[in-house]
Design a protein around this nucleic acid. Sequence first.
DNA 1: ATGATAGGTGACTAAAAGGTCACATGTCAA
DNA 2: TTGACATGTGACCTTTTAGTCACCTATCAT
Lengths: 108, 108
Amino acid sequence: MVRMDDDLVFKALADPTRRLLLDRLFERDGRTLTELESQLEMTRFGVMKHLKVLAQAGLVVSRKQGREKLHFLNPVPIRQIHDRWIDKYREREVSALLDLKTSLEDTA
Amino acid sequence: MVRMDDDLVFKALADPTRRLLLDRLFERDGRTLTELESQLEMTRFGVMKHLKVLAQAGLVVSRKQGREKLHFLNPVPIRQIHDRWIDKYREREVSALLDLKTSLEDTA
DNA sequence: ATGATAGGTGACTAAAAGGTCACATGTCAA
DNA sequence: TTGACATGTGACCTTTTAGTCACCTATCAT
């Protein structure tokens, strides 16, 4: 299997601000730069740089609309990370283990 | 859901050498530092540092045996990354899309 | 015991990444 | 058309990280 830009994806995910941006887009897609900036303790320029990194990694796709630019989350690279180190045989047990852990935390 | 060390995990995955170490351990567990070092263009100290980062992230677990130390891959944090940005509803389509992509690449 | 082997620590240097700013372009609304 | 708004670029500084080395401890085999 070809893994063309895996380095860009992992580097992109390494920064907490960028992960937070992905979280915001996971909640709701199609946000603008200004909207994302308003929720971060950072200047517009910092957020813009982060969005660029995410876009080059393929984790975020953008579309221009008038003077605004809307940003969308692309989950495909995330799934590829998963498939790299979790084979289909072990997927069941790992997933089950995490479900159990989550339910324990919820009841606690 | 509590995500205690997610930053350590993502930072650990950001380096290509560390991902290569995970690949080697994914192929076969229980390797020693010396064995891992012999396959990398790097001094023992560099590899040791990388293993330490992976261990602190919980991606690698180690066990001492005599004067050797055996290293094992722990896939659980990987699965947690997956679950953060891929909900169970979208998992089917993303997974199917990637399976299709893989089969196309194989026949090409 | 002693030489060889496996692993560990702290200090150091060079490269990469995060963040800000001055400045600039394109778009909207009155 | 003109002022406000949304986004974009390049240079710059600071912090973090990757990698190496001198030096050290623990274990094995003879």
